[in-house]
Design a protein around this nucleic acid. Sequence first.
DNA 1: GTGGCTCCTTGAACCGGTTCACGGCAAGCT
DNA 2: AGCTTGCCGTGAACCGGTTCAAGGAGCCAC
Lengths: 346, 346
Amino acid sequence: MKEASGRRRTVRISDVAAAAGVSKTLVSYALNNRPGVREETRERIVEKARELGWTPSLPARALSVSRAYAIGLVFEKSPEALASDQYYTSLMAGLQSVLANERYSLVTEVVESTEAEREAYLRLAQDGRVDGMVIVDLRQDDPRFALVREAGLAFVSLGWPPERTTMPVLVYDESEAITDVVRHLVDLGHRRVAQVVGPQTNAPARLRRELYQKRFREHGIDASRWIESDYTAAGGRAATAALLDGDRRPTAIVYSNDLMAVAGMSAAFSRGLRVPTDISIVGWDDITISQYLHPALSTVTQHPFDDGKVAATLLLEAIGGREFVEPVWMPNPRFVPRESSGPASA
Amino acid sequence: MKEASGRRRTVRISDVAAAAGVSKTLVSYALNNRPGVREETRERIVEKARELGWTPSLPARALSVSRAYAIGLVFEKSPEALASDQYYTSLMAGLQSVLANERYSLVTEVVESTEAEREAYLRLAQDGRVDGMVIVDLRQDDPRFALVREAGLAFVSLGWPPERTTMPVLVYDESEAITDVVRHLVDLGHRRVAQVVGPQTNAPARLRRELYQKRFREHGIDASRWIESDYTAAGGRAATAALLDGDRRPTAIVYSNDLMAVAGMSAAFSRGLRVPTDISIVGWDDITISQYLHPALSTVTQHPFDDGKVAATLLLEAIGGREFVEPVWMPNPRFVPRESSGPASA
DNA sequence: GTGGCTCCTTGAACCGGTTCACGGCAAGCT
DNA sequence: AGCTTGCCGTGAACCGGTTCAAGGAGCCAC
């Protein structure tokens, strides 16, 4: 097929103006629902525009109003880690679900170092490619807040930012789910438990670990056994191996994501241990396959799609000028006991 | 923190021109490496530009050269299906890995119907938001090719397009891996095998099913047992249930993706069957957790990240005007036998 | 009849780049 | 000396929208 191009003739605002017999100013007013256009004229213009199939050129509009009509999402993550974590994809889908209706687009980037992340932020901002950023996976002393501040970009933060801000912030309380997990394990008789946690430079990962420890202590359980890992399957397997091969093997292990938990189960199996008879496993995330595993994984469900929806809505409002004083609380994650956790072995 | 805005004063090309004591035309020439600028002058301009931290405004450039400096990727998929399939995320990462260096961005959309998909395509094209599209998951009589043709957009197709085109096409040969899987199963003594396949409106899904059937027949195996499913875990589980609960239970099932295979294993387990002792399972994709399952899943590995890299490279060349006559062959998928396939039960 | 007011409409500037056509100047040629 | 040629540089138009300030028409009141 010969690409039937030959200069795609796009219809401009001046074409609509000519067709309707008015100035292009009036067309602009009419189609942006500005006051000061006679109703009859407005209708005629709208009709003509529809007839000609006119849609405004985004670059042109972007240039004149200094808005990109797009928001950015930068993942600082290995492609592998990104691909195997459903949270982000669902979050994206949630963002899209509201952006599409507002004629906004989502510009994504995947970078593999904080240096590249910095460049990506600067580039998106300086190029005028986006009007705001979605900030996820908050880290200790997160540099991204300074970047958006300097760039004058709006943002929405999924998690507590380091300073007060007038931008929207989404938070939720993990302590309830954690309390449930710990009680569940204690009720099943577990006394020797260990944690496999995410990178401790990552603020939520740290908080989650601390909340678990707090609850463990409240039940008189030694909370000192935790291993820092990296949310990958390989990392989870290695951490689990260390726990299982050490002395005083735990009777239960809680993981900070499902992927590590699955890998942990695999490590247990390869040592001839049975789950949950010999060791109980609890994950975090509730990825799709968790319920299809054998045994099905006890875990904590989150709501990334809804997070995305709310984040996008608020970010658009922030871009529109709204100021936020209070963080928005999202529904809490919820513990879902399944087959991988059972009575403690003797 | 008070957002330190107060109108972010961006540096324009005219500022650079003033600083270097030349016209803005010359600045433009100098920074775009055009001929007709004295070397000494060019250096002075570049120096000043760097000093002032100038980067071109994307909307402005986009407006004047009619290029968006972005490419689009539209997924017509439920968020759930998208999130649980690593292929797409890895593909995105692969695309990004080359786009970032070229100052191109990736604009993604997630839509849930072919109608919404159509709108997304039209919108991206008419708005002048992208210069080209990445077309994945080819369907029967795929409408997207007509859309990009009408819109005059460049594209790269991952799979055979319905008509000849001068745009880049990426293909690979699955028959080799399929031959290996079938020989593997035959060598293990399997004679009753079934397939759980993807939506047959999806061209590659159909082809994969046919290739499997062809090989089965070559070994004198009844190839008529296949169930169409939807690539989701729930679908895979239901299809597997139908196969296991029918008469003449197969001794092996091959799935068109890992997610369905995992769900299939789960269905087998819940009926008290052992894998692979009672039934062998083979997937397709090699998602991260496949090797961490118990038993580890025999499957076929692909290279979505590399696909993305190559696709982006070729698409950029196509946008630059290059015409393609031959499709580009990617490395073939490869069968990876693991623990979920073993000798046929009696 | 004139001033003032409201309502609708328009010309022109502007957003920040790219690019075309042209001009000045020095060197090279006859 | 006069003409061509090439190099380097510039003014102005253009991309396709938005928006400001101003203008014309119609109406009312004094």
